[in-house]
Design a protein around this nucleic acid. Structure first.
Length: 239
DNA sequence: AAGGTCCGCAACCGCAGCTAC
DNA sequence: AGTAGCTGCGGTTGCGGACCT
């Protein structure tokens, strides 16, 4: 039986007080991060479990955390990365300097999911719902989704989706529900995977074309956004 | 103004992966 | 190789403020 991470009877729960925050910050300033399990005692008798301290530090107290609304290019990037990586929030956060996995996860669940649904995109697999895709290309939250009425563009879009599915399916050791989709996409499109650089610890500047710009283009019924360009932008995510 | 509902965010929980022994 | 402990991750919950009736 696993030992609990702390003695829950002796720990506070819920919102952190200013004093608790200060104790934690002071301790980490002097001793650095790590040894979370022993930290509460060492930090002047914080009545929190180590896990809670770690979370509080990572999600709130770290000095380099960017707070406030997400910029449109950040939204755009999150959508793209989610299409590629699924719910691997920590990896996605690695691409967004100053943002935490928790923050991104919350933002996704409260804003972006709904946004995609409203646009007729399934937020789970980023596939365009059939009814919409058969009509005008209302598509697409992300550059990866920039579709167009032109057939070859649609095909490229499907290839891109298959690539992202396959990326997820090829994830080491994980058993993903999309494996079947990925296989079928591969069959359909015979798409060759690029070398994916999934070392996502280094942030990359956002692509020049933002989600908003794309939406404007769509709204104006202009020529469809250039999928090749979008593809390239997505591929910028890879080394 | 009061009560009800919705929404966003911080925090908790349980599990999995990694490492040391 | 097996086990135990620690850390990190993702899903979920619950609180508090905003908004609506």
């Amino acid at each position: 039986m696993r030992k609990p991470c702390c003695d829950k009877q002796d720990t506070n729960k819920g919102a952190w007080s200013k004093q608790e925050d200060e104790k934690l910050i002071d301790y980490i300033r002097i001793h650095g991060e790590g040894s979370w399990r022993s930290l509460p005692k060492a930090a002047g008798g914080l009545l929190r479990c180590g896990k809670s301290c770690r979370l509080r530090w990572i999600n709130y107290l770290q000095p380099n955390i960017k707070r406030g609304n997400f910029a449109e290019d950040e939204e755009d990037l999150i959508i793209k990365l989610h299409a590629l990586l699924g719910n691997r929030w920590s990896l996605i956060a690695g691409r967004l300097p100053g943002r935490t996995d928790n923050e991104i996860k919350n933002y996704w669940n409260s804003h972006l999911r709904r946004k995609l649904i409203n646009m007729g995109i399934d937020p789970n697999n980023h596939h365009v719902s059939q009814s919409l895709s058969l009509h005008r290309p209302q598509i697409s939250g992300s550059a990866t989704l920039s579709g167009g009425p032109v057939n070859h563009e649609r095909k490229e879009w499907q290839q891109l989706i298959s690539m992202t599915d396959n990326d997820r399916a090829s994830d080491t050791g994980s058993c993903l529900p999309s494996k079947k989709d990925a296989a079928s996409c591969l069959e359909d499109n015979a798409y060759v995977l690029p070398d994916l650089n999934l070392d996502l610890t280094v942030s990359v500047p956002s692509p020049p074309t933002t989600f908003t710009e794309w939406k404007q283009e769509s709204a104006e019924l202009e020529a469809p956004s250039e999928l090749g360009n979008a593809t390239n932008q997505t591929l910028l995510l890879f080394g």
